[in-house]
Design a protein around this nucleic acid. Structure first.
Length: 546
RNA sequence: GCUCCCGUAGUCUAGUCCGGUCAAGGAUCCGUGGCCUUCGACCACGAAACGCGGGUUCGAAUCCCGCCGGGAGCACCA
């Protein structure tokens, strides 16, 4: 109908009649089956019937073309601050950049944004390697690596240029006064400073004549700027924090915006991809480039992303790791990339998960379930099944048929090509206390094996009890997960809240080696941390997801 | 408070620039059934959305205005 109207304006005035007629025709067509419809269409010489709309591989999420980008000429950057391991929150920075690098056959630079930070957020030497390891895990290899701390000297000429252009002044206001003035839109007396005076002051800063906190170089924007955040922002400040790479060599350090205004130029960055929490930095960089009369890269943003389960504050993770409350940077509670790896969550799953959000500017909070779903798609078909029971009770089955000493179980119920394993089966078993309690006095089936009757009274704490064999007939009664007691292995299951669950695993787990993935039936996917080390170290596995 | 950004099912996302084929597509989650000796996977079916109010138009998720809601920034951190 739309096509009719758009092609013949004269019909528009009688649109309601056209609609009625169109509805009749559509109803008529709708009554035909697909084949008749296609035939009729062909008879009219029309186009082939359209296939139903198809979704793309990335769930259809959008990555619009980068403005002005040409294949082979795009240069992007990753700019982590080395004060912790890379978190799942960093994954968007990593994969969005990597996605565009591939799309445009571009280059991706790793630039450690290692200016000294603050007392609360310090640069620490161990994190350079940790972050590079995290990128390896993520399977994103930078084309080159730079360090801001190597480039401090490169920033000073640009500071001079800014001062000469009349764009900056040295301010001695204490931090709180500076903030109050900014909020009030009030200029301090030093704002009128002449270029020559600023030059002298700047040299005094460099010469170390001022105490930390007593002088800053500020950009002269406009103290009446409608955005209070943009009023005369700071360009350089003094810091005497010991830097892991350059020690105390520099006292005058650029703020993030200034350092990037320079490096985005000097490193030849063509496109800056960042979260929209950093939009004011765009404006700062552009302001400086205008002052310097140069042209800088384009900016593209994404919205704020939160993972519902991963709301741990970065500073909290840092404290807990340092104090030893957390295992380390791969403790599941950190939600670091390495902790996901430890849980058996593949980098491909993380990538697919992140790319599913596209470059949307919406602020979103997603459940980790979506990530788990991606991982399941990737590992389910190749992951062997194993039995594990938590909080086990040893059950001895009386009347167990002689001759049944083991069972051959498939490694994967849907994939016979993964083979089978043989596990000892009875008369002694481990069953989960929870299962036994829920079916006291009932006949239950040991999954894939035989039926037994549980005793009516289950002692709260006893470690063992007895049951009786009933039959091997495949009855539709509750089926319980079991582990044959012979050669069973103690297992320590580390959960994502850092909790440990002790249980028993089937004999086949004796030979399992670190980094192997399994699905513990009815529990979830796990990854082995440490193999069995008798006499006292249980197999340790880390829980991944259902 | 000021500045900027964002509002499509429970949660993400496509569609919005260039109004009609969108009685809105996909994913995930949830429910039911199947397969069936996993609470996993797979298959089938089902439930589920254009924030609100005006306007323009034959026709609005799409354009305009107002409102409401959410987020971010307002560090001598990054």
């Amino acid at each position: 109908m739309a096509r009719l109207l758009s092609q013949d304006a004269s019909l528009r005035s009688s649109a309601s009649e056209v609609r009625a007629e169109a509805d009749r025709v559509v109803a008529e067509i709708g009554a035909l089956d697909a084949r008749a419809r296609a035939d009729a269409l062909a008879a009219l010489g029309g186009p082939e019937a359209r296939a139903p709309r198809a979704a793309s591989a990335d769930h259809g999420a959008e990555f619009p073309d980068l403005p002005g980008a040409r294949s082979g000429e795009v240069v992007l950057r990753l700019a982590p601050f080395p004060s912790g391991a890379l978190h799942i929150g960093h994954a968007r920075m990593i994969y969005a950049n990597d996605h565009y690098r591939k799309q445009y056959a571009g280059r991706l630079l790793l630039v450690f944004d290692d200016t000294p930070g603050s007392e609360e957020k310090k640069v620490e030497s161990e994190f350079y390697d940790i972050i590079r390891g995290d990128l390896d895990l993520a399977q994103v290899r930078p084309d080159a690596v730079y360090y801001k701390s190597d480039r401090v000297g490169a920033f000073y000429p640009w500071a001079l240029r800014t001062i000469e252009a009349g764009g900056a002044y040295v301010c001695h206001c204490p931090a709180d006064l500076l903030r109050a003035n900014r909020a009030a839109g009030r200029a301090c007396a030093e704002r009128d400073q002449a270029v020559q005076e600023t030059m002298r002051e700047w040299n005094r800063m460099l010469a170390g004549e001022y105490a930390v906190g007593s002088a800053v170089l500020r950009l002269r924007t406009d103290m009446q700027d409608p955005d209070p955040a943009f009023r005369d922002r700071i360009l350089f400040r003094l810091s005497n924090l010991d830097h892991p790479r350059v020690g105390h060599r520099y006292r005058v350090w650029p703020m993030l915006e200034f350092s990037w205004a320079v490096d985005d130029l000097e490193l030849g960055i063509t496109h800056v991809l960042r979260g929209k929490d950093l939009v004011i930095e765009d404006r700062m960089e552009r302001f400086l480039w205008d002052l310097w009369k140069v042209k800088g890269p384009e900016f593209v943003h994404w919205g704020i992303l939160r993972i519902r389960e991963a709301k741990v504050a970065k500073s909290k993770a840092y404290r807990e790791v340092k104090s030893g409350v957390f295992d380390g940077w791969d403790d599941p509670r950190t939600w670091s990339l390495r902790s996901l790896d430890r849980r058996g969550i593949t980098s491909e799953a993380v990538r697919a998960f992140i790319l599913s959000f596209g470059m949307s500017l919406s602020d979103i909070e997603v459940p980790a379930e979506s990530l788990y779903s991606e991982n399941r798609k990737l590992i389910d078909a190749t992951t062997m099944r194993r039995s594990f029971v938590a909080d086990p009770v040893e059950v001895t089955v009386s009347g167990w048929p002689a001759g049944i000493e083991s069972a051959e179980l498939p490694n994967h119920p849907d994939r016979p090509e993964l083979g089978t394993r043989t596990v000892p089966a009875g008369p002694r078993f481990y069953l989960a206390r929870k299962d036994v309690g829920a079916h006291a006095g009932e006949e239950v089936r040991l999954k894939d094996l035989a039926n037994i009757r549980l005793p009516p009274d289950i002692p709260e704490s006893s470690g063992r009890l007895s049951a009786e064999f009933t039959s091997r007939e495949n009855k539709r009664i509750p089926r319980l997960q079991w582990v044959g007691a012979t050669n069973a292995v103690p297992v320590d299951l580390l959960g994502i809240e850092g909790e440990h669950t002790r249980g028993m695993g089937e004999a086949a787990l004796r030979s399992a080696t670190p980094r192997q993935r399994f699905q513990f039936e009815r529990v979830g996917f796990v990854r082995l941390d440490r193999g069995y080390a008798p006499p006292d170290l249980p197999v340790r596995v880390v829980y991944g997801h259902p």
